[in-house]
Design a protein around this nucleic acid. Structure first.
Lengths: 135, 135
DNA sequence: GCTATTATAGACACACATTATCTATAATAG
DNA sequence: CTATTATAGATAATGTGTGTCTATAATAGC
């Protein structure tokens, strides 16, 4: 019951891309330089974000990654689900018994949890980070 | 980012012990009979619940497990933390940077999530289950 | 066109936690 | 004393996350 390292890399990359959004494309090697992660591995993670439509990639010289058009709407939930996958984050029961009272209770709490993450926009977090820089 | 099978077994066992609380001790073999799990494995899980003080064990003939004294106060969170362990449920960052804006945001949502699970008492769920039985 | 640069994809390997099983030991009731 | 029951240790299987290596495709600049 924890977020993977991949999600960690993805979230910090998104924050970085948001902070340096005005500068155009950024290559994987630069993005990996800010974290302890290899370029090939981070590349795989970013490809998930591309397929989820959160960022845009351009191959070739001077290429790299940048945020999608309406990047200000991207939330923590978007990134987490793009990396971890959509279906049941809290995969509590595999027997998916809809009448299971425990399942119902946990899913209720899960729903609220995900909804809260869905209100946290990375653009807002980046704005806060600008005031108290640490990256 | 999911609850383990062990937690699944623990929660259902707790629900069962709550429903049959008036009948005294219940052996592991009976408890395991209700789920697809071996007695030795379930035993290890229940030992965690014993050490967490959620249930009481009595060895020997006619022994088994029963709920602790003030069993009506036990919540889903108690059981989950007894099995999964207390420290950071959502172990997002290992670099625990307290100034990390992402860390702060996720931990805020996590706190609300855990607090909600802490309000869900198994005794209440058992009461609901009695009205709509399915176990 | 040629070359350097960059993203993408596949195969593969490794570490680690979860999920078990088996066996032995301790404690209790009758 | 015996059957029953919980506890603990050693061990194995399984799967997922993590990571590397190599090859391929696409783009910019010359």
């Amino acid at each position: 019951m924890k977020l993977s390292k991949s999600t960690h890399y993805a979230l910090h990359t998104m924050l970085h891309l948001t902070l340096s959004h005005a500068e155009g494309h950024t290559s994987v090697s630069k993005l990996a330089g800010h974290q302890q992660v290899s370029t090939t591995y981070l590349s795989k993670i970013l490809t998930k974000l591309v397929k989820a439509g959160l960022i845009v990639s351009v191959p070739g010289a001077n290429g790299g990654y940048k945020l999608k058009a309406n990047w200000k709407e991207t939330t923590l939930l978007d990134v987490i689900q793009a990396v971890e996958g959509l279906p049941p984050i809290f995969d509590y029961c595999e027997d998916h018994n809809p009448s299971c009272i425990i399942q119902q209770s946990i899913q209720k709490a899960e729903k609220n949890f995900l909804e809260e993450l869905g209100t946290m926009k990375i653009a807002d977090l980046a704005e806060d980070a600008r005031n108290v820089p640490h990256h």
